[in-house]
Design a protein around this nucleic acid. Structure first.
Length: 313
RNA sequence: CGCGGGGUAGAGCAGUUUGGUAGCUCGUCGGGCUCAUAACCCGGAGGUCGUGGGUUCAAGUCCCACCCCCGCAA
């Protein structure tokens, strides 16, 4: 079976590797064009591209596959296309090329969290269960028939980055299982319950601004959900203090103010309901560390407000 | 050459401007106090100050080069 893989970020890498290890014939890889990334703003290949090159697989990087990738895809004569966090919308013309269709690996329990950043949104909304779904890609966004899914209880203290790592490997296993059943003819297509669907927009940097009137649980989830990007932060000195991990406590205090800040207690901030203990933070130029460690070398005063300044221009 | 912060004891920091005995908080080890404690008291161990050169009587501190970590921006 000739397979063309389409994916871009780290999440897609385990799926591509799994296909190769399982012996599938990956004849081509489509991924987003190299973008300026990192400290020197140098052009950098996507994680998927790096793996593809290591295995000598032809790489295609159209700006828009539905506009200038059609001919390349046709030339590859794929039996099947596999997508995983590709980041581009496929047209019907593209979908019609692979004879056995296109399978997508989506990091949510569909029909919830269609759209981008499904893992971050699952944490942000405090979902009890998280997972991965394989599905047949169709014209709409993540609305095709479901094939298989993997679900697990959401690890309480897992960041979006950590959960992404877990679900990317589970997604890879699920993909292989999906293809095996497809070949065996035992795959059942399950239409999504479109009434129950939710669609999530892309994450924005402004989402990292915390509304301290929310409950401690909501705020702790937001902090975990937006780690590593865009990450929650509070104005602090000349720059911003990143809040990378937090746990909800039952303490009460003025929302947005420091309740306690010693090396023994850690940084505790009041919320609308309860309070959050910052279990990991990062100062400008510094490494991520527990607030207890940070407070050994930096003084913070109880009572101080971390509320965003009202600078609505 | 996109902008910027940083590398000093196991952890987190000060000290560098104005060169002159390596300092703070925490942890750790030993001892004490307490019904008890993330409490308190006493004492100890632990550092080639990122690397290599240079200036100097003397360099964590000044000069040159390099390595590594990180924030913004994408």
């Amino acid at each position: 079976m000739r397979i063309v893989f389409m994916g871009t970020p780290d999440f897609a890498v385990p799926s591509l590797k799994a296909l190769l290890e399982a012996g599938y014939d990956v004849v081509g890889v489509f991924t987003q064009p190299d973008r300026p990334r990192g400290r020197g703003k140098k052009l950098a290949p996507s994680p998927v591209k790096e793996v593809a090159l290591e295995h000598g697989i032809p790489v295609f990087q159209p700006e828009k596959i539905r506009r200038d990738g059609v001919e390349d895809l046709k030339q590859l004569h794929p039996d099947l296309c596999v997508t995983a966090a590709f980041g581009q919308i496929l047209s019907q013309e593209i979908l019609d090329i692979p004879t056995r269709g296109t399978v997508n690996v989506h990091a949510s329990l569909l029909p919830k969290h269609r759209g981008s950043a499904p893992i971050a949104w699952a944490i942000l909304q405090g979902d009890a269960e998280v997972g991965v779904t394989t599905m047949m890609t169709s014209r709409g966004i993540d609305d095709g028939d479901m094939l298989l899914h993997y679900s697990m209880p959401r690890p309480a203290h897992a960041t979006c980055g950590e959960l992404t790592e877990i679900l990317s490997t589970e997604g890879a296993k699920l993909l292989i299982e999906t293809l095996r059943r497809m070949e065996a003819g035992t795959l059942v297509r399950i239409p999504q319950d479109h009434e129950a669907m939710t669609y999530d927009p892309m994450l924005k940097k402004e989402m990292g601004i915390i509304d301290w009137n929310q409950s401690a649980d909501e705020i702790a989830c937001r902090i975990l959900a937006l780690n590593p990007w865009p990450s929650c932060s509070v104005p602090y000195g000349d720059g911003r203090l990143k809040l990378l991990r937090a746990e909800a406590l039952t303490d009460e205090g003025v929302p947005g103010t420091i309740l306690r800040a010693t090396p023994n207690t850690g940084l505790v901030i009041g919320c609308g309901k309860g309070a959050v203990l910052i279990t990991q933070l990062q100062a400008p130029g510094g490494k991520p560390m527990h607030s207890k460690d940070y407070l050994r070398g930096h003084a913070m005063e109880a009572g101080m407000s971390l509320q965003e300044k009202a600078e609505d221009a």
